[in-house]
Design a protein around this nucleic acid. Structure first.
Lengths: 245, 245
DNA sequence: TAGGTTCTTCTCAGATCGAGTATTACTCAG
DNA sequence: CTGAGTAATACTCGATCTGAGAAGAACCTA
């Protein structure tokens, strides 16, 4: 882990506090049918030039306030419909070569957002498909993996997949969100039946989309998120024998 | 926007209030058919004389090592079969009147342990039925509530209920564990069918208990925990409409 | 020995599941 | 404008899972 020799050589631990608390955010969204995570390019040592999860030090504020602040700073967007929940805290000695750093990781589900402009002063943040988000700084690979696990199981029994969609969406769009997060296709007819049969998952707007799909098909009906907080019954992933043992 | 490196370079420890990181443990067990939590009586200010979750400062060690250490110090027992998992981190400013304290809470599932002797130098820890564990120090009431939520849902889709049992147990004992954690009775026949039908949940020892129940009934067969890490299908709680919305 | 208790296995109807089919409405290429 | 292909939605079917209850045998205490 401590491959930044020059940096560490000039670093005097005694001059600084021996520990710090940060937040790191695993912010997920769906772009072009792919599950993407928000990454930043690190300018400073350690891990200069490497990609990392957005994050920073916690100020005199609550933890979730710090997480939301970091997320808004990186995306440059006021986030209203974003879902944010605490994921896990990482504090192994040595995970940061400078000092003992405890990082409280958060998981965010965001509807598709504009790419942060690289020219703007906002930040050097950008969305990356999760399969391509490897080799991150610190232990952020592990944090991302934990976030993906959480996201994939959370949409099974909560309506949080709707947090990836706009205010109004079609059943088909919702199905594509599940497909993107789980990385596998779903049976359209069964998914349709299931979503409509779960009380409070979605509610009809009474409207239909302005036009059908790009390659044909009727105009789908529009729905918005319902008031359920849990899905009963749950929308389970196709059984994966491997994960069971 | 500044990243961690820039922040650290200009960081003056004297300009900021001191902070600390602690672990607190929600240790659960079943005693006499009741779900109990391990509490300690605080000797020092703040909250002197109040009950609290066992916990303490994190040393130069991993977080889960700190949690296990605290738990062993309080129970005075070497814990081998205990399940320990991270619960959530609490860091609201003001949750500790002395300074900013971030507490990483852990959740432990323990088989029934002997009551720590109050005469011993081990500690002033004791098991308390969860319904009676109110008015705790700091924000420990909220931490305990979160731990109970987690435990109640975790035994639905993982075999962790077996962590409350001994090495060998009967289906009936397992059912009483579920009943104690969920706070409701379960249909014995259906529970029996369900447990045996989930692959890897339990495996037969081939033995039967030395004697039947205290008030009659045949000698039940003995089982031990199987190798499953997830229950497929899950053992869902009777639907609670209230919790859904 | 009698009566009550518990373990374990069945039964049965209703809900849910995955897989497939059918119908209709739409888009696009030519 | 038309025909081919695609997608939204509804429906069918058999397999599986569910909760509720019943039954029989084993076992305890009185």
């Amino acid at each position: 882990m401590q491959n930044e020799g020059e940096f560490l050589a000039g670093y005097d631990p005694a001059a600084y506090p021996s520990m710090a608390v940060t937040v790191d955010v695993v912010a997920l969204t769906i772009r072009d049918g792919r599950l993407c995570v928000l990454l930043v390019e690190r300018a400073e040592h350690p891990f200069a030039g490497r990609r990392a999860l957005p994050g920073g030090f916690v100020r005199e504020e609550a933890l979730d306030v710090a997480a939301m602040r970091e997320l808004e700073e990186e995306t440059g967007v006021q986030l209203e419909r974003v879902h944010l929940e605490q994921l896990k805290t990482y504090g192994n000695p040595g995970r940061d070569p400078r000092m003992r750093v405890f990082s409280v990781a958060y998981l965010a589900f965001a509807p598709s957002l504009p790419e942060p402009e690289s020219g703007s002063d906002a930040s050097g943040a950008y969305w990356v498909p999760v399969e391509e988000a490897t080799g991150l700084a610190f232990d952020h690979d592990a944090i991302l993996a934990d976030g993906l696990d959480r996201a994939r199981s959370k949409i099974e029994y909560t309506p949080l997949a709707t947090a990836f969609a706009g205010d109004e969406f079609t059943i088909s769009e919702l199905r594509q969100i599940y497909a993107a997060v789980w990385g596998e296709e779903l049976h359209a007819g069964n998914f349709h039946r299931k979503v409509l049969s779960v009380p409070g998952f979605v509610e009809s707007t009474g409207e239909t989309a302005a036009r059908g799909g790009e390659r044909g098909g009727p105009k789908p009906k529009l729905y918005r998120a319902g008031d359920a907080r849990l899905l009963h019954p749950a929308l389970l992933r196709p059984t994966r024998e491997d994960d069971v043992r």
